[in-house]
Amino acid sequence: MLHATRLEVSLSERPILRDVEFRARPGQLTAIVGPNGSGKTTLLRALTGETPFTGRVELDGDDITALKPWQLAARRAVLPQATRLAFPFTVLEVVRIGLSCGREGGRESLAEAALARVGLSGFEGRLFHELSGGEQQRTQLARVLVQVWNPVADGLPCWLFLDEPVASLDIGQQLEVMRLARDFATAGGGVIAVMHDLNLTAMFADSVAVMREGHLMQQGPPGEVLTDGCLSTAYGCRVRVNVAPTAGAPFLLPHACAEAPRFERSAPGP
């Protein structure tokens, strides 16, 4: 279990996170949602130890600030939003960097296996910086997957921290990646993902944390949290939540508000 208490983060004396209490269980996919600038990514960065914070973050009972970098690396992997590579590595070489830093460093075939999982078989010899944004993102996901290949290792769950994992993907790939994350959780690992797409969140998350202005507004199962009232407050616009006819998951439609028009209609010129 990942448990954060009284989490506070300030950047150049401006508070970004205020008194956040956050929980994520292994075996579950926990999504962090909220409007831009609400502190989603900062929360994720604090949970991974990347951003200095005050308060306490415990990963399965251990204070993360007390763990050595390599001990943390054996228990959790982090997917950043985007990566710029400094040098012309191939796709296979990028994945192997992750492999060499994980528990399964000796099992070379895992690199190819991970690329196959993210749908990039055949891309091994391509240069990373020549790939499209979505391909780069999936290469990084493969790199992260090989670092914590087994969802449970030595009796402890492994954790995946994903910062907008589907941001630059098409709709088919979005579903693929979310299923991959789901499967990792089902197998006993923990997944924490910052999400923009509320419908994907509703479909795949077990627990949703809604952020607003640096506070954690509410956390709970999607059916309880993704409601008209909560989302309208968080995002500051009217949102209508329905239930998808087939899946039974909440299904969101933002309202195009019928307020006063912001542009004057002008007569066409001569």
């Binding site: 130890g49 990347e50 970098p69 001990q71 982090v78 950043p80 590579l85 790199r143 670092q147």
Partner: peptide, 12 residues
């Protein structure tokens, strides 16, 4: 080469 944060997450 993956960035400083990524390297830290990899246990360096």
């Amino acid at each position: 080469a993956l960035g400083e944060a990524a390297a830290a997450h990899l246990g360096i």
